[in-house]
């Protein structure tokens, strides 16, 4: 319609470098996702002592990356879209980290009291459990 020009042509062209390939790629990704799902279920059923969650999350991240890169064409689109996606992921991770730092390093009794009841000594010397808390016995109490 009108002759509006635009500064962002270059950015746009970068985003448009698409390679229209056949459905083979999608089928391959689909098979990979199915296989990974089976793998994560099988390993999940084994209930590893350590690292079960980490393994599950790694597999999930790989699957997620496959979906984002190929199904959502992030591999072809450069520039802003990638930044948006990566930034949002970064923020999710940082938000998780900061809150987990908190409960990981908090004064123990400031955590929900019912979370680890067995580790809470019900009575400590000088407190006779009456005041309930099962707090760590302080160094000394007044006589």
């Amino acid at each position: 319609m009108s002759a509006m020009a635009n500064e962002s042509f270059k950015e746009d062209r970068e985003m448009r470098q698409e390679h229209h390939s056949g459905p083979g790629k999608y089928v391959a990704i689909w098979i990979a996702l199915m296989v990974l799902t089976v793998v994560t279920v099988v390993t999940g059923r084994m209930h590893f002592e350590t690292g079960a969650l980490a393994l599950a999350l790694v597999i999930a991240s790989v699957k997620g990356a496959l979906v984002a890169l190929y199904f959502m064409h992030l591999a072809e689109h450069q520039g802003a879209s990638r930044i948006v996606f990566v930034t949002s992921m970064l923020f999710v991770v940082l938000m998780l980290l900061f809150t987990l730092f908190d409960i990981g390093t908090r004064f123990r009794p400031a955590l929900p009291s019912s979370s680890t009841p067995q580790e809470w000594p019900v009575s400590t010397p000088g407190q006779s459990g009456r005041y309930g808390g099962g707090l760590q016995a302080p160094g000394t109490n007044p006589k």
Binding site: G126, Q127, S128, Y131, G133, L135, P138, G139, T140, N141, P142
Partner: peptide
Amino acid sequence: PKDAMDVYVMGKQWMWKFSYPE
């Protein structure tokens, strides 16, 4: 500090209650 004496403080609407271990 390790040698601090403990006082339990409980807030409730709308008062403070204090108790000493003994």
